[in-house]
Write a protein that binds this DNA or RNA. Sequence first.
RNA 1: GGCCACGUAGCCAAGUGGUAAGGCAAGGGUCUGCAAAACCCUCAUUCGUCGGUUCAAUUCCGACCGUGGCCUCCA
Length: 486
Amino acid sequence: MSLAIYNFLTGQKEPFKGVTEGQVSRFVCGPTVYDYSHLGHAKTYVSFDVIVRWLRYSGYNLRYVQNITDVGHLLDDGEDRILKGARRERVEPMQIVEKYMREYFTDMDALGVARPDISPRASAHVPEQIEMIQTLIEGGHAYVVNGSVYFSVESFSEYGKLSGRKVEDMEAGKRVAVRDEKRHPQDFALWINAPEAHILQWPSPWGRGYPGWHIECSAMAAKYLGETFDIHGGGVDNIFPHNECEIAQSESAHGKPFANYWMLGGTLLIDGVKMSKSLGNFVTIKDALERHRPEALRMFILSGLYRSPADFSEGALEAASKGSDRLNTAARRVREALKNPPDLGPDATPEMTNNLIETLDQMRMRFASAMNDDFNAPLALSVLFDLGTEANRWIDKGIASREALEQADNIFRELGGDVLGVIRAVEVASGGSAAREAGLVQMLIELRAQARASRDFARADAIRNQLAALGVTLEDGAKGTGFRVS
RNA sequence: GGCCACGUAGCCAAGUGGUAAGGCAAGGGUCUGCAAAACCCUCAUUCGUCGGUUCAAUUCCGACCGUGGCCUCCA
């Protein structure tokens, strides 16, 4: 069962074939670090995180590069985003960069997103960018005007091939006044001449200035992944102009394909419309994490395809959160059954165990074929839900043999935990306070048991309700009362 | 206006040329002192509308309606 990827470049699902057998080189456009990360970032990076985890789980040797944009990404009014942040907070631009880059990683860590292997910063790769621009000028793909350098879209016949746009179709100047110094309205800046007062600037062969937004990705991808690499990822909202420009620059400079597979994640909507600051429906990851567990957010994101848009709403999050609880409860029950094996009934024969093992093997295969089919996480997730239902049933029916439980536990840990990151790892109840807490709860459970034995249900319920208020849920079972902490 | 997606039960959301995964919600039942958790049962003859191709379409084609995205701010 081999891996197939939907390639935006061709508009088709294609079997994956890496530049180098057994390896995957991947670049994903990273954030511009001038403000807190939002749910759109969460969707994109959780989606690509699961792809990383699946590729690694499948045995590929993956190198994952994700840039940090800290210069050159301009706002409508031409101001650099970093400078805007610096002005807002009255600090040095690089303080803004450090602050929000750290916040970005903190948020991603909280969401369980594995860090990229390399997180190169644009401002740290100015020489590489200058070198690439030089190459483009020499090759006749770029020209210098008044200390700025522009890429000539007419020099690259395939410009528009990713986004399906034709230069002729696009009437320039619709939204933003065209700078007259460009030869063609679609030409884009590689290097921007800096006024003397501009805080971010570097010396270059064309005078002092700063790099344009697109060139950083091309230069850094080439440096760390080579001139042609396997997968380029990002959000669809960057398909034009950003991704298109990356292709134009890289392929013009190197004369060979840039990325073989383009994977673009769908946009995150809030109650049906795109999230934006101006609409006031902007939700940061920190805000969301105050209200929901990380697994619930991941569950929400993974319950749709990575390349489809996702519509965030409190209702949708609530449903995902409940689903996440169900899965985690089932996984925990399997773990507990392994620690305290349940009584087996007369149906727990070796043949029965073989049947269960076969069912579990099939689940692994179903999961793998879902993930290998362009990373169909929602379908893979449904396999885990099936496993939850089955495992619960096996335990209830007294047929859950040790072998079956071990296999089920493995699937939950490996596929639910390591790959999708929706099942929490085993809570390590080590340390003095955790042990003390468990002891205290156990004491209350015994007090309640005494109350129940003497049919003092008011007292028993009071204990249970007060524990519930503290986030400790009691569960009465055949073999006594257990508890879980939320 | 141009380009591109999408439209599946109350909600979220997979999927296939041969008759619809999963989650949430809802209803009934088992268990329980009552809960919680869990299990069992029920819940789209139907996949935006109208045509077409086909033995057969939700799945292919066309038109229309609707929603969303992009068109040099955004992951």
